[in-house]
Design a protein around this nucleic acid. Sequence first.
RNA 1: GCCCCCAUAGCUUAAUGGAUAAAGCACCUGCCUUCUAAGCAGAUGAUCCAGGUUCGAUUCCUGGUGGGGGCACCA
Length: 539
Amino acid sequence: MEIKKLEKKIKAILSKHFPPENLESFFLSQPPAHISADASTNFALSIAKKERKNPVELAKKLCEILAAEKIGAEVMGAGFVNIRLEDSFFFEFAEKFSGAGYFKNPENARKNILLEFVSANPTGPLHLASGSAATMGDSLARIMNECGCSARREYYVNDVGNQVKMLGLSLKARFLKKELPENGYQGEYLVGIAGKLPPEAENWPDEKFSAFAIGEILKLHKKDMEDFRVTFDRWFEESEIHKKNLPAQTFEKLKAGGMAYQKDGAWWFGSSAQTAENGENGDDKDRVLVKSDGNNTYFLNDLSYHMHKYERGFNRVIDILGADHHGYVPRMKAGIKAMGGDPDSFTVIIHQMVYIKRGEEILKMSKRAGDFIPLRELLDEVGTDACRFFFSMRSPNTHLIFDIDLAKKKSNDNPVFYVQYVHARINSIFENAKEKGFDADEKADFSAYKLNPEERGLLLKALWLERVLDHCLKDLSPHHLNGYLMELAGLFHSFYDKHKVVNPENEEQTLARLLMMKTVKHAIKTGLGLLGVSAPDKM
RNA sequence: GCCCCCAUAGCUUAAUGGAUAAAGCACCUGCCUUCUAAGCAGAUGAUCCAGGUUCGAUUCCUGGUGGGGGCACCA
């Protein structure tokens, strides 16, 4: 939180010279690599017009104000103010950084977030593409919690409906070695599950086959997610909302509020009218709630499930969906609004489709037998670390082409190893230090220590991790963290090649550098941890 | 036809409206007697097109072009 503290401090100083409305646009950012400064602000540029002053003049004034408070700053370019921090600042920062709760932001304390993701139908093994959503959701939840929000992960299990019936019938056919029903589930996995059925299943009713199949497939999903280091706080079964009679209650409430009408023997939700007043992003047509055969649509059930999320106390509800479901978003927002909720508290992260490149062929993710690539296959062949880092590297908006042959064959080229290698190398530095009699945790006085550019660069990078996490929260995507870790790793490897940490002839330097190594190691371990990637001591 | 997403280096991708657009792969040149060469140092190489807003646009807006996805009384 040192960046936010510094921003707060500078803002307080500036508040004596600028009106509050102009101060709102003040923030610090990390200067680009070729600028030798520790923090910079475009404040002078952004308020020049409002203040009716030349930006460079304003920037000069800023520097004078800061200099009076002993903050070193200079003007550069068109009006950037670049701040240089004292060496002592970095040592103080390093002492705090490794402490627990460094990233906890009190402003996030009231954010009670529910993330729903993967939620694959329990009718077959998890597809590779589920790994993408699982990575995004889990890493995002980890980052949110690290930053002081309360985020919970949920997996919605569609354990009722036609597909479940069909699954049971398909399993039964496999068990009795009969022809599969039309539109039945073709996958070989049902043969394996049939083998687990007891002999008396011969006399089971169809529903029991369904329940058995779902139970077995859920076990697979849970195992896959566990091995992928994704822990759901709850596996919410759709049958639960029916036991609680929630869809009927939702339906009644919509009717009572005049939001539902009857047409052609079905009940409709006026979603287009409901969203029309919102202007943009309205639903383009009304949606059926109860079909003319008397059954609920998926939408009505799902709306009641989403309202139940709010009833459980969550004030921010986030779904992660594939791009093929984006059309679903406006009607859900309209539904939440009609139910008296706040549509702005509901966010859908749409991730674009993952395409699989195998050989020269680009496959759409598909459940057809020949094209189906299970997540399990990739986990076993490439490993969780490489998979998770690879999937979290991209923004959800990227139309990713996943070259599966490359991923398997050349997994060593995955940048995850470059980052993990930092952790392993620092670990052996500590071992070496210990052998030479240095105690890395020893408190020492570094007030006279002059940081060289590489040392300063490492501590500066660690300092800015805080802002990277802010960007992840803002964009609801962990991918900024991957880029950050690769950059930090690059700085470290370069430092490592140029400077030696353990030097018995220079105790002050050794202890100072050990503190830096501790800081870098903590940044790497924390960052990798947030991505669900391990930080090995040896490689 | 309408809606959403995308277009950056040979390939896969980064870049809160900011300063000299950043990495990896591929390719080329050097570097292991020193805390792990899964590494380092260096060379080559890019913002789809046309307007607009702005002190400043890869980023925002409009219009093209090209690609992906979606437009069910399915779930």
